[in-house]
Every structure is written in C-alpha cells, then in structure tokens.
Design a protein around this nucleic acid. Sequence first.
DNA 1: TTGTACGCGTTATCAA
DNA 2: TTGATAACGCGTACAA
Lengths: 341, 341
Amino acid sequence: MKQKRKRGTNRVTLNDVAHKAGVSPITVSRALNRPEKVTDGLREAILETVRELGYVPDYAARALASRTSNIVGVLSSALGSSLFSPVMKGIEDRMRNSGMRIQYVNASVDPEEEIQQLKQFLAQKPAGLMIGGLQIASRVTEILHEAPCPVVQFIDVSYPAIDMAIGIDNQAACLTAINHLLEKGYRRIGFCSGRLEIPVAKRLEAYKHRMTEEGLYNSDLVLSVTAANPISLGGDILDRLFAVAPDLDAILCCHDDLALGVLFECQRRGISVPQDLGVCGFTDIDCAAYINPSLTTVRLPLYQLGYRSADMILRVQEGRKHIEPVNLGFQLIERDSTRRV
Amino acid sequence: MKQKRKRGTNRVTLNDVAHKAGVSPITVSRALNRPEKVTDGLREAILETVRELGYVPDYAARALASRTSNIVGVLSSALGSSLFSPVMKGIEDRMRNSGMRIQYVNASVDPEEEIQQLKQFLAQKPAGLMIGGLQIASRVTEILHEAPCPVVQFIDVSYPAIDMAIGIDNQAACLTAINHLLEKGYRRIGFCSGRLEIPVAKRLEAYKHRMTEEGLYNSDLVLSVTAANPISLGGDILDRLFAVAPDLDAILCCHDDLALGVLFECQRRGISVPQDLGVCGFTDIDCAAYINPSLTTVRLPLYQLGYRSADMILRVQEGRKHIEPVNLGFQLIERDSTRRV
DNA sequence: TTGTACGCGTTATCAA
DNA sequence: TTGATAACGCGTACAA
C-alpha cells in the first residue's frame, strides 16, 4: 500500500475545526462566510471551536478556490506624499471590519513599470481597486476596462470614468481661487504647478480661461516645476516669474508645498505677503494654517476621498450595480497670504 | 461517463503554456522559478511561449502549493506620516526586480487590533516582515518570535532584536543634540515629544542624564504632547514651558513637526530664534532647511532605513543565516535656529 | 440545512 | 534533466 505523503504545515485548517466540531468542512466554511446559511446553534458551536483552535483562514487557498481574494488595492504614485496620509486614514476607517485587506502599491512613474505593476496586482484577483495619479495611458485604460473587479479612480470629475470615479471639479476649484485673487485686486497672477497631471491640467485650463477673459493671460506666467522636494523650489519660482514679469503680484500654486517654498523665500527676500505678493495654494496641508502669513488655499477633502472610495467598493460588493461618479467639492480657505486691504 | 465540470477562469495557466511549448507543467514552473534546473534552449523556448501567451502566475496557487508567498509586509503605525515617505522609497528601490511584492499595512494604535492585524498578515505566509512603531507588547513579541519568516524591526539599536533589527542609537543622537545646545550656551532646555515610544524614551533618558550631569535637569521641562496635527501644538508647548520656566532658552523637539509649530509660534509672538530661544528638531523633514530661521535638527537616514531593511530580508532569502543588527547613525545638521553668537 | 465530490493552479516528491 | 502524481486548503456545484 502506498504511503500517503504529508506536506502540510502545522497550521490549523478548516478540516481540523470540522473534525473537532463534528461537522463537515464545508459547514465550517459556511459558518464563517455565510453565517445565515447555518443553524444558529451549530454556527455558534463552530465559531467557538474556531476560537478554541485559533483557526485563521488560509487566504491563498480561499483565493484559489473562490477565484477572488479579499484584497483591495490602492495604486497611486503619490503614496509617499504627505497628501496621501488622510486618504489612507479615510480608506482604513471605512474598510475596518469589512473583512477586506488593503494593499497599498506605490505606482512607478515609469509607464511600462506601472503597467507591469497593475497586471501583477490584477493577477491576485483582487476584490477591488482604487487607483490615482496614474498616467492613464491607453494601455492602462484598456487593462482597467477588463479588470475583473470594481475599480475606483481618483480623478477630476469631468474625466470619463472607466468604472467608478471620485474627485473634485478642478476647473471650478481653480476658478474659485483665481476669482478670489482677482477680487483682492491682484492682476499679474502667476500659475505654478508640478507635473502636469490631469487635475493640474484642468486647473490650468480654468486659469487660462479666466485670465484671458480679463485680458490678463500671459503664457510666460505659467510654470511647471518638479523636484524631489517641492519646498526647495521657492527661490526658483520667484526668480523665473519675476524675470518675465517684474510687476507680478500674486502666485497661484497647485500644491501647498510649492506655496510653502514661495512663502519661505518671500520671508527671506523681504517680499511682503500679502501686500506685495498674494500667494494661494491647493490642498490645505497641516502647516498651512500655522505658517506666517497663514496660507490661503483650496482645501481638498482628502479624508473623504479615501472614505467614500472605500465605501464605493464595498457597495458594489453588496450587489449595487451602478454607482454614480462622486464630486467631493472643495472649499476656499481664506487666510493671511491673500488678505490684503 | 461523468461530465467533467469546468469552472476555470479564462486566464492563461501554467498548463496552457506547457501544452503550447510541448513540455510538462512542472518544467514550465521550473523554467520560471529555478532557471538553472532547465536546459538553456528549452528554457528560452518556454519563456518565449510565456511572453507570447501573456502568462502571469497565479500567486494564490503558488502560495498554496509552496506554502510561502512572495509578499513582504511593512507594518507600521507611521505609514501615513511624512516621515515614512523616504522609508518607502528605500524599500522599493531595493525590492524592485526582486520578485517580491510589498504590502504596507497601517498598524492600528489599538494593541488588540494590532495583534489581529499581525496574525492575519502572518496567515499569508509572507516572505518577510518589516515592522516599526509597534507597541511591542509581550503578545506581539511572542507572535513575532514564532513568525515563519524573517522579521526586521525598526527600533533603537539598544533594543533586543527578535530576529533582525535596524535603527539608530537614540541616546547618542539626543546626546549630540543636547551637547550642541549646551555648547551654544543654552541652559534652560525644554524637552518636547509626542507619544513616548521606544525611540523617544531613549532620547528622554539621554536628556535626563546629560541635564542632570550639568545640574540643569528639571522634570517640569519635559513635555509629552499629542495631536492629529503636531504643528498645531506650537502655542501649547510655548505656553506650558514658559509657565514653569520663564527663563527657558531652548527647546529640543523629538520631531521636526513639533519644532515647526514652535518656530511658527515664535514668529507670531515675536520671540527671536535663535537669540532668545534655541530650537532643535529630529528627522530633518523637507521644509527644515527652508523655514526661517532654518531648523537645526538631527537628520535620520530614513531612506537608508528602508533600503537596508529590505536588503536584510533579501539576504536571508538568499540563505544568509545570522544578520547583525544595523546601526544607521545620524547627523546633526546645524542651521540657524540654534546659530547664535 | 448539511454533506459529498471535485476542482482551483501551482509546486513537492519521487521515479525515470 | 524531465515527467507523473499527489497534495496544498478551501469553495462551488450538486445531491440528499
């Protein structure tokens, strides 16, 4: 008689629980995954055994058998950014006790690598995917269209969603900021951003449009700068803008980090903010309210972004069919950096 | 004859590749995982077929069969912190092309939940685990001791490692900072921190020790403060320290965020830094060099922390047995906030 | 409501 | 060096 080969680890399995509880493995499985399908008493006995034995399900086996995992992925090239922290918090607050596991993947800025990451991630048969800050190259779009799971994109509301989308109206947000600067009497307004990603492009559109309306548009006042540390660019930004427009009187920065750099550099150069130069940012990062002068900025609801996108994924899993794109809105926070008399 | 049930997804499997290449599945598996075990020509033919068919391995199946996954976990309660961004970058730079997948888990600050997260994570049979900022309650230690994978702790070098450890000597770092302040002639030096985690506790020890040596120690000058936004605490810190010591002349902050808040508040109150008050931080965050006055701080090699801890995991996988704890060192960056004459 | 049989896609084991 | 077979632990399909 052939000897039965044993390869198992020593972990407690569904079978062990089943044996001890005197039921079949599948009943234990049901007691855990579809409690309503098992008689109350039996279920409790089984769960008690589960606790006793310290049984923890094997996700790999579960994924293999069910062809879906409980992993929800968050893919973004901004994971490391300070901006992402509240998003994370929102996601986790909503996902807690949902049985889902969240896997953050720091997307590469290299398109090829990004596609590879995406493919690899999808090979896990995830339960859901949240994706932000990607290049949205055609290849990526294609892949996402065929993704076997709900997909939430963090993106401008005007952008066509592949599946679900959540974000803000960047044009409206930027328009609000520009109008604020105009109301304050600023006229020569520079526009400064990092990489020209979709949200930034939308803001730039609004800037162009509104400034042109006022007969104030000058393409030399549009700056796109990048550096590992955006705060370090304050001097650069001032140099370059003042070089083309010595009468510059305000700067709209697409991220508070840039604005911060500008404010610091103004302090150093003795440029008086908001009198000589108005500065407005985007995001409302932690120190925006505390810097001197405090920074006027467009507050982005980042916590909500995380919370509600997680919510969208969970709702789809509960069977909801179509989920409308979500416009989170924004809020202009007027502070001292534009508060001139 | 019984009809064979077909449940499969439409994905390309190892079997498909094997068929097309005219070999057995196990040979394909070997060609991918242990290339040296397959004849050169055959291997190339197989890899070509893999590309042609766009085969992507099923990690769940792989994990189930091999009882180990290619997931390396990063558990920390500081994931969302700006401090973590360089760590991430370091980890990813080292792990790229290693075949490992990195899974970040934002550890809960609730000990019970933390233990649960840890257990769940270990149920995935991870290839490695990096862990930082945890409570290191006895339960956690116990679980980590039995972890079936290499474990790297981010922790003070003086702390006993469960498996491997990497970090800095917080006592030495703090001593350096204190000595710097003393050299600059500061005497009434406050100590301000967030939660009293292990690294902070070590720094506090050094502070106590050194200040006592100088006959300057006063427990009222030790402050532990917490808030969602540490920068907001600047006013609090100044109020509380000046209340007990009107002649306070320096503050050592355990994180630059706290120092930032203090600097902003000093600007607002017209307290002259570094003349009336010296301020020193820890970390060297992005804006430390740009704020006015620029912030003297102890630079922590966070990128290296990530890079080298990833390296440790990979080395163990290559068969290395014992890996010594790593002391990363630190560097005092003297800037204007303590540069008084 | 519970159980039986089998398949998910891969790798370990052993034989050729 | 390559292949046949079984096993990994769980869930699906279907029967009782």
